[in-house]
């Protein structure tokens, strides 16, 4: 294990059923110490259930949770060195910001001087020092979120869990907070495990992303890995827009409804899907050397920084820079570079 990061959290054969409903089918995953790990998936995929099992708010049906070598599966939340930032933040409305943050320390009967010192330091870290005497109802959504993070971090947890932390924030603030959260995590070196359904958020924040669907982890890897090389249709479609093309294996590539496409490696199936992101398709007036598709523009959506084109054949979406002047009905040449074509497993 030399040179390998210490394995911090091990999720081993976890399953969870609520009556006849299966929330988690066998989940196995390691989360390394100090990484920003994200569970990404649509609602109902089991990501929050998995987070709650790690937090000690839910017992798994089978399997175990191991934190730095110690089995903590049956330890309740109050006995785990794991703290949670709840989706609704769950701040105590009758307590001041200071007392909210001090809650965990006071529960464990820390001496007053220590409480004062640590709470003040944590509030300063999150730039909330000026708000210490206010009540939660006097704060904005973004400030409440900072308090929720401070309240968890002040306990110096081994792992910080974040359940959809951005869901209560507006879009503009969200982008800013994502970066701040990332910086905070890097600075502290604490393991963060975040649950989200927002792929952009997962891509911005994470060291690694586990894409979940229907109670299973479908693919786990760095943001680049899961975005650029989705394993299957679900991952390709869930992480951003993707054009999926039905294909049949042919020498050096695939034969599709939009013509022959050369690939870097031949697929191991006979019939299946290849994917390409709209932004990797090049649009031009002349026929490219490789993987050219002659297409007609069916629809144009202006998005400020770019145009989204809907083209036929193949009902593909193409994202292109905004400086070109397109009209509906224009004939164009598309280039689908072999490097950007991803062979999906299903």
């Amino acid at each position: 294990m030399n040179g390998q990061p210490e394995k911090n959290l091990v999720i081993r054969d976890i399953t969870k059923s609520f009556g006849s409903v299966t929330a988690l089918k066998t989940v196995n995953q390691e989360v390394r110490q100090g990484e920003f790990f994200t569970l990404l998936g649509p609602s109902g995929c089991g990501k929050t259930t998995l987070l709650r099992i790690i937090a000690g708010l839910e017992l798994p049906t089978t399997g175990s949770i191991i934190l730095t070598g110690k089995d903590i599966t049956s330890l309740p939340a109050a006995k785990r060195q794991v703290n949670t930032v709840f989706q609704s933040y769950a701040l105590f409305p009758h307590l001041s910001i200071f007392e909210n943050v001090a809650f965990g320390l006071r529960s464990r009967k820390f001496p007053e001087a220590e409480v004062q010192k640590r709470v003040a330091a944590t509030l300063d870290l999150l730039e909330m020092g000026a708000m210490r005497d206010r009540g939660p109802d006097q704060l904005s959504g973004g400030q409440r979120q900072r308090v929720a993070i401070a309240r968890a971090l002040v306990n110096e947890p081994d792992i910080l869990l974040l359940d959809e932390p951005m869901s209560a924030l507006d879009a503009k603030l969200r982008a800013q907070v994502q970066e701040e959260l990332r910086r905070l995590q890097r600075r502290l070196g604490t393991t963060f495990i975040m649950v989200t359904h927002d792929q952009a958020e997962a891509l911005v924040c994470s060291d690694r992303i586990a894409v979940m669907n229907a109670g299973e982890i479908i693919q786990c890897g760095t943001p680049e890995e899961v975005y650029d090389f989705p394993r299957n249709r679900f991952v390709a479609e869930f992480l951003g827009a993707a054009n999926l093309v039905h294909a049949r294996r042919a020498p050096g590539g695939v034969e599709t409804e939009i013509g022959y496409l050369k690939l870097n490696r031949e697929p191991d199936w006979l019939e299946g899907l290849v994917a390409i992101r709209p932004e990797w398709i090049k649009v031009g007036a002349v026929k490219p050397e490789l993987n050219g598709v002659h297409a007609t523009i069916q629809d144009i959506v202006y998005r400020g920084t770019n145009f989204d084109l809907a083209v036929s054949p193949g009902a593909m979406r193409v994202r292109t820079n905004a400086f070109k002047n397109f009209k509906i009905g224009d004939q164009v040449w598309l280039e689908l570079p072999p490097n950007e074509l991803v062979v999906l497993e299903d």
Binding site: A55, G56, L57, P76, A77, A78, N83, T84, F86, Q87, S88, A90, L91, F92, F103, G104, S107, R108, R151, A152, N155
Partner: peptide
């Protein structure tokens, strides 16, 4: 009752009375 407050208190090491 908002049970997430109860869970938050549990998560923050509170005793039953707390």
């Amino acid at each position: 009752l908002d049970w997430s407050l109860v869970e938050a208190a549990q998560d923050l090491y509170a005793s039953r009375i707390r």
